[in-house]
């Protein structure tokens, strides 16, 4: 589903050049749950942003669903991203001005899904993730676990092919963290591909494959 060939990302400022990702080649299959692990600064999050089409690589190829997309413009990437990829972040990143329902509905709005469908899809996903009773609440009124649940709802509401999760349990206590991991596992079992960045071996154990990065290099893959 996603293939990277010698994917490289270099960040340059006036004085410093940092190679965050160095010739990483990997393949994420449809329906797979992969975890990316490695120490701080090894390039995990950079890899995730490239896989999520949030940024273009410096060199190398990125093949998404059979198309080479590494040279896509921001507009093309947006188009591809909004109907295919859902994101879950460590710090939830819900929009404070929107309530639970509206936060979840947001991607559908940008996909120009008609109102009736939008409502139905949002209701369904809320029901599935057991957050319907909080529909009118605003992010500030929710616990961390609940916020992450909403963020997951938002990530899956458009039925994306792929969910990218960046340390989804990083800001949660262990009970809530487990809860979130179970949700992701459930989504994966329903057919959604998931790539997750994590520090936690426990979280990684939910994944079917672990990809290890060190200093921008792919160092190991374990099934």
């Amino acid at each position: 589903m996603i293939q990277t060939i010698e994917l490289t990302k270099v960040f340059r400022t006036d004085e410093v050049e940092t190679t965050a990702l160095n010739k990483v080649s990997l393949w994420i299959k449809k329906g797979e749950f992969a975890a990316i692990m490695g120490p701080s600064g090894c390039g995990k999050s950079t890899l995730l942003t490239l896989l999520g089409l949030l940024d273009n690589p410096t060199s190398g190829q990125l093949i998404f669903d059979g198309k080479e997309v590494s040279k896509y413009s921001e507009k093309q990437r947006t188009l591809l991203r909004k109907s295919n990829i859902g994101f879950v972040f460590q710090s939830f990143n819900l929009i404070d001005e929107l309530n639970v329902f509206e936060n979840i509905e947001l991607p559908l709005l940008y996909q120009k899904v008609p109102v009736a469908n939008r409502k139905k899809m949002t209701e369904e996903v809320m029901e599935r993730m057991s957050i319907s009773h909080r529909r009118k609440h605003f992010p500030q009124q929710l616990s961390g676990g609940q916020q992450q649940r909403v963020a997951i709802c938002r990530a899956v509401v458009g039925n994306p092919l792929l969910i990218l999760a960046d340390e989804p349990t990083g800001n949660l206590d262990s009970a809530n963290g487990e809860d979130v991991m179970n949700l992701l596992k459930q989504l994966n079992s329903e057919g959604t591909s998931i790539v997750m960045v994590t520090h936690s071996p426990k979280d990684a154990s939910y994944a079917g494959r672990i990809i290890k990065l060190f200093d921008g290099h792919l160092v190991a893959e374990t099934e």
Binding site: G52, T78, I95, P107, R154
Partner: peptide
């Protein structure tokens, strides 16, 4: 910045 970036990640165009 985070909020508008987030919207873009969700698929919002610059014009939106």
């Amino acid at each position: 910045v985070r909020e508008t970036g987030m919207r873009k990640i969700m698929g919002a165009a610059g014009s939106q």
